[in-house]
Design a protein around this nucleic acid. Sequence first.
DNA 1: TAGTGGTCTAGACCACCGC
DNA 2: CGGTGGTCTAGACCACTAG
Lengths: 237, 237
Amino acid sequence: MLSLSARIRTDIERRIVSGEWQAGHRIPFEHELTAQYACSRMTVNKALSALASTGLIVRRRKAGSFVAPQPGEQALMEIQDFAEEAARRGLPYHHQILRRQVEKLDTLRARAWNLKRACTVLHVECLHFIDAIPMAYEDRIIVIPMAPGVLDETFAQTPPGTWLLRSVPWTEAEHVLYARSADAALAALLAIPEAAACLVLERRTWYLGKMVTDVRISYPGERHRLVGRFSRTANAT
Amino acid sequence: MLSLSARIRTDIERRIVSGEWQAGHRIPFEHELTAQYACSRMTVNKALSALASTGLIVRRRKAGSFVAPQPGEQALMEIQDFAEEAARRGLPYHHQILRRQVEKLDTLRARAWNLKRACTVLHVECLHFIDAIPMAYEDRIIVIPMAPGVLDETFAQTPPGTWLLRSVPWTEAEHVLYARSADAALAALLAIPEAAACLVLERRTWYLGKMVTDVRISYPGERHRLVGRFSRTANAT
DNA sequence: TAGTGGTCTAGACCACCGC
DNA sequence: CGGTGGTCTAGACCACTAG
């Protein structure tokens, strides 16, 4: 049993994550929702304030409330976009697609990718360069039905991670971080000595409980650091 | 200019992080705060609800509102307590203090520890064992004035990270993660081959803008993984 | 300037739960 | 049982800002 304000909030949330209301879409005014749900303005305000505090919407006096432009990742989630990172540092970025093919995963191989069932996926490998130096090797599968349009995308212009962030909604994610020594193949790709230490980030993303993508990104240990910031001060009002 | 409900919230927040109100302390009832701040109950309720949603307090009908037992870390912050991790996995834990000495850091050495000024600190090195296998090497400095009582603590019973978590409040933290190859000394301590890949976590913690502690924890890459989970669904009501 | 969100009031009813 | 928090109402005044 949800409270009315919680129901209003989840109703709006669902429309946003489903893509029905895209970034920039204007949410009904408080007085409209008041009429729609037959409740007082305070109840609506509580729902919208909660959404604003999570960053899902932004509110402007006189203008209204709008779906926030960025799906708004948090902390360590932000590290994904290499092009953006390079731009911040004023360095040129490019990427290179090493593989892009549809694969049928049998049960065994599916399990290796943390999928429960056999499945048809798009398998992509990609190298990321910042200032012409290889900064990361990305090995990724994308569950095709979860990413409509992915088969029309070559990733020539936009690397797969960036494309997915822009095109596919997600609700849950998991990161796993560990260090390993580069094998010969990885060392060659990243132009580092064999057995050099690498930082490996595995990221799995779901939408409403269904796997969207599973990616393993390997960074040369000496060239990359992941940074996360935390604050315990509440971020309201 | 803070709103009244925000002021009530930060007033209570400050008493909690300062230690004036310890875990389990009962916060004044809503009607008491209503009288104290000469405002309506809704205003007080908004402040307390916000604190409850961040996990800083817990609220129980008929009983009242209480400072939450755990200071409530988030996501990757939780990885710090080895004893707890070992207990979850049903394995024995112990630690070994390799160094514990007061040091005067000159400006140069202070900068190496990310401190801006010369400073007197407690320097601690510690090895963590799970199931008798070395799981991490910890190299830490503690800014003595920020951790009252630290000079009376030998860390024989409680490792420094756990002691700090329990004894010293913090408001901001930063994590930096990277991979490196173990040098001879680290390899010997962790009982791994020289040049094996290690995951290094640097964590800096501040209280109201002043550095509390700076720690570098090195994990054998093959023996440890850091996991973080994220969800975009709001976690209220 | 008019309309929006930001905040607050002084009530109200209810569910829950410790006594 | 009585007191607490959970939620909601039907107003109100104000600050901000887009048009």
